[in-house]
Design a protein around this nucleic acid. Sequence first.
DNA 1: CCATGTGAAAGTCTTCACAGCG
DNA 2: CGCTGTGAAGACTTTCACATGG
Lengths: 214, 214
Amino acid sequence: MRDEISEHTTNRLSLYVRFLNELDEKGVRTVSSSVLAGQFGLNAALIRKDLAHFGDLGVRGVGYVVKDLRRELQAILGLDRKLAVSIIGAGNLGLALADYPGFRREGFRIVALFDTLREKVGQESRTGVRIYDIQELREVAHREGITIAVIAVPAASAQQVVSTVVEAGIRAVLNFSPGALRVPPDVKLKSVDLTVSLESLSFYLASVESGGRG
Amino acid sequence: MRDEISEHTTNRLSLYVRFLNELDEKGVRTVSSSVLAGQFGLNAALIRKDLAHFGDLGVRGVGYVVKDLRRELQAILGLDRKLAVSIIGAGNLGLALADYPGFRREGFRIVALFDTLREKVGQESRTGVRIYDIQELREVAHREGITIAVIAVPAASAQQVVSTVVEAGIRAVLNFSPGALRVPPDVKLKSVDLTVSLESLSFYLASVESGGRG
DNA sequence: CCATGTGAAAGTCTTCACAGCG
DNA sequence: CGCTGTGAAGACTTTCACATGG
């Protein structure tokens, strides 16, 4: 893990892990870079480059041993530790994310929701994730060992919330609010902008109509 | 709109529009590329390049006229038409997306939810989006002029669902299911992989610990 | 022989630096 | 003068092509 790994690469590693899980369940023993490439519509050399960052994971003439590669990538991605995650904002989106089965399946533990509304605090999501007052964030985060926060609050309060999260000692934030957020350089902020995603489709449709392509 | 516009560029255009809306509300008349750059942590030249794709939108020595640039970008992104959107999958995530205020605010109309479960069909989301049987997709899509579908179903049914969507004549798809989906070349598929996003944070935390950076 | 690992080439995106124009 | 628009340079990412080794 010497040189700098790009986010493009790490995102693809996640995809590889998921597919390796499937292969392992099916009892497949080895897989080649070209099979992986076919699965994801990528170039085989790119996949080998991605994996070669982490040492000689493959076997020449054979490919990659599914179980070994899977274990290796899980360790690299830190998925061998059941990270504790909290969701800030118990609105529709926050509640949906708290109960999203994909997070659990990949080894995350959603341990708490936070909100400011009195009538929500003390309640639970459908799958039983408890809603705390945001003021309890620091304490609960410490107690539960929360290392990742997911922000699902309205744009107007997002900056305030992210600051609270950072003050509570959380260094990794997944943000679903629109708009720019500022975090210290030692905090990793990843934003998913739902509106931008939809608008890129709108652009595609507009440009198809006007004769471009998109 | 001659040469090919990259998705990086169109994604940023969405951000610019949102900020221009704010500026316009505040009564700001003009804005320079360096102010925009500061807002988003980007390089000013990049912003000028993004905008220059679409003609000479700026005024030398002055900057960009907020109202004009906003209108121009909205037209480019196709946001001047209130596109009709449907959500496939009335689970937690689908319902949350159907009621997500950000979509409406940016000019989209969420006109229908679709599901296969009898007990859901005929119900409505909190804000009153009706749930139809997926079998009605073609008819409702045609009647309501739906041009964008959002996929929020479990991974196992996603490929089947996306095929149904394409058969109904919808050419733009926003996918929230994990895993690779195949669509014809004239269909634009944009995927948001929630698990990959969380895992990139996990990688960051793991690499910080092991002395790298991430 | 076969598939990996990897320099070199190609392609893409961003930044620099400055000419051009209101 | 100030800020846009842009050619050229630089940085980053992907693909090619092949040497390497089980």
